[in-house]
Every structure is written in structure tokens, then in C-alpha cells.
Nucleic acid binder design. Structure first.
Lengths: 155, 155
DNA sequence: AAGCTGTGGTTGCACACGCAACTGCTCGCG
DNA sequence: CGCGAGCAGTTGCGTGTGCAACCACAGCTT
């Protein structure tokens, strides 16, 4: 049984400007990720989620990263990441390494092939991100957007 | 890390401000939709995608809408929408109606129960959207965000 | 040292989604 | 009139993901 929470009751609708700000986010995200994912997949056979993982690891210290840290960085469940890393390992793009200081842990680190694939994909993908998103904003606006996200994230 | 004047044509990396603007979007979207979906699901047993469909139909002329139009509005594949509507119909929240002017088409329209559930969910959900997102912005900033999305969508 | 609680990672299962193939219908064109 | 092209919607199949249960280990507490 749904118990109605005590709402500020006469706010049953978003006004036009709220709607634009909110639904715009939803649509923009959906459109951009679909387009970029398709682009990446077509050009390098690499889904966006795999790309994110490879790039995260490549930019990490020592070219390796703990599973848990990867998962929380890209907001993926641990099981989801396990499977994703399974696929990347099967494709020879990265490999698991056990952690000497904590036997529970596992590192994921890039193989040479993984680094090659990533390097090939990175330029094209970043160009896509710029063309489809960043180029629509001035440097000042980009800075402002960054501040917006930080504000939202802070709660 | 001082941002030297790197030519925006450095294709291999995003600079710090580009990164903040871009990854902020990804993370914000992921965090927000997960939180709002969980909230909605817990309070009214309604996933976010179902809510979107119900609301779209409720706000449409005559309380009904063609399948194709729904799908394109929420950027879902047609097959995905078929299954989603299957679930909603099974749960008694909406029903299919054949289209008299085009025998290929089908309308989805709310049942009384669907409208009740939606009305109950709407206030709580909108409050969540405001609390988690909109309230972080002044009216002027909301307006600006709306303009941003429009700019990105225009390509 | 033994036990207990919490954490890192993997597995079983269910589910939502996309793609491609299919059905049934509409519409235009010869 | 009939035929072919194309669209609306559904179905079969494969896949990516989350949740919950599980195992192995770390770090306390006693």
C-alpha cells in the first residue's frame, strides 16, 4: 500500500523552464551516449563502457587499477564490472593481476594490445565528444558546467 | 595543474575543464537516474521508464498516444516499448486501443488505475527531481541550462 | 591464537533492452 | 485493379546489467 508522503502539494507540475532544464539533461545524455557508443563500436569494435574502463586504467598510476575503484568510478555494479572485465580479458585487451598486499583484491591492467586499441580509439572518440558536445560551449561555459555538476554531486 | 594554453586541437586528451564538463554530465546523469528510479520504485513500484510513458500519455491529447510516438519521445526502441507497454498493460495501468484511421497503428491509453498511480507518483517524483537537481540552480541558471541542451540538440 | 564482522570479487538468476526478421496494413504507381 | 514499397507493431534471440547469495580474506576484539 502506497502511503502518500506529505508533498508540497500544489507543485504537481514542472514549469516550462524546469522542464527544459530537466528533460534536456535526459534527452541530451541519451542521444549523446547512443551516438558516441555507436561511433566507437563501428570504428573500433569497442562499446563505450569498455572504452571507459580502458581509459581509466591507462590513466591510473602504474597502468593498473583495483576492480572496486573502477566500478565506483564509472558507477557500475561490481558484478557488472566483473563481466565487463571478463569480456575485455577474453578479447586480450587487459589482464587480471592479483594484489600482493591484499589477497582479496585484484588489479586490472592493460595489455599492449589493449593500449594499442585504446590509443587508436581515443582520438576519434574525443573528437566525437568535442564535436557533439564540448564545441557547443565556450571555455567559460564549460567551466560553468563543471561547477554545475559539482554542485549537484555535492549532495 | 596549471592549464597551459593547449591548442584545442590536442586530440589525445581532454583538458581539465573539458573533462569536468563532459564526465560531470555522465556521472550526474547516472547518479540522478539511479537515485530517482530507486525512489520511484520503492514508493510506487514504478520504474522510471514506466513513469515516463504514463506521464507522456497523460499529458497527450485525449489521454492516448501512438506507440511509435511514445517510443521516439523517450528514445526507446520500438521493441523495447512493446515490452514496456506489455508490462504496464499486464499491471492494469494502461490498455491498447486499435486505431480506426490506420489499422496498423495502436494507441496506448491510461486506465483509471494508471491515472491514479501516476498522480500518486508524480508529486513525489517531481519533488525528487527538484531536490536532487533543479534546486541547485537559480531560475536564471535553469534557463541557461535549457539553452545549453537546445544548442546541443540542434545538431 | 580463535572468532567475528566487514569487504573485494565472482557466480546464479532474472530482467530490460536492441537488432533483425516477420506479419499485417497503407499507399502510390503502372 | 493489382502489385510492390514502405511503415506500425510484435516476436525470437543475444547481450549487458543489477541484486542477492556466496567465498575468501583482512582487521579487530578478546
Amino acid at each position: 500500500m502506497a502511503t502518500a508522503p506529505p508533498p508540497p502539494s500544489d507543485t504537481a507540475h514542472l514549469d516550462a523552464q524546469e522542464l527544459r532544464a530537466w528533460r534536456g539533461l535526459l534527452r541530451t545524455y541519451a542521444r549523446l551516449t547512443k551516438a558516441l557508443d555507436a561511433e566507437l563500436e563501428a570504428a573500433h569494435g569497442l562499446p563505450l563502457s569498455s572504452y571507459e574502463v580502458l581509459m581509466l586504467i591507462a590513466d591510473a598510476e602504474g597502468g593498473q587499477m583495483r576492480m572496486h575503484d573502477i566500478a565506483s568510478s564509472i558507477l557500475l555494479s561490481r558484478s557488472g564490472l566483473t563481466r565487463l572485465v571478463d569480456r575485455l580479458e577474453r578479447d586480450g585487451l587487459l589482464c587480471r593481476k592479483s594484489c600482493s598486499s591484499d589477497a582479496r583484491g585484484a588489479f586490472a591492467c592493460l595489455t599492449p594490445k589493449g593500449r594499442d586499441v585504446l590509443d587508436a580509439a581515443r582520438a576519434a572518440h574525443l573528437a566525437g565528444v568535442r564535436a557533439k558536445f564540448l564545441d557547443h560551449f565556450s571555455p567559460a561555459e564549460q567551466e560553468q558546467l563543471g561547477g554545475f555538476w559539482e554542485r549537484v554531486a555535492s549532495t
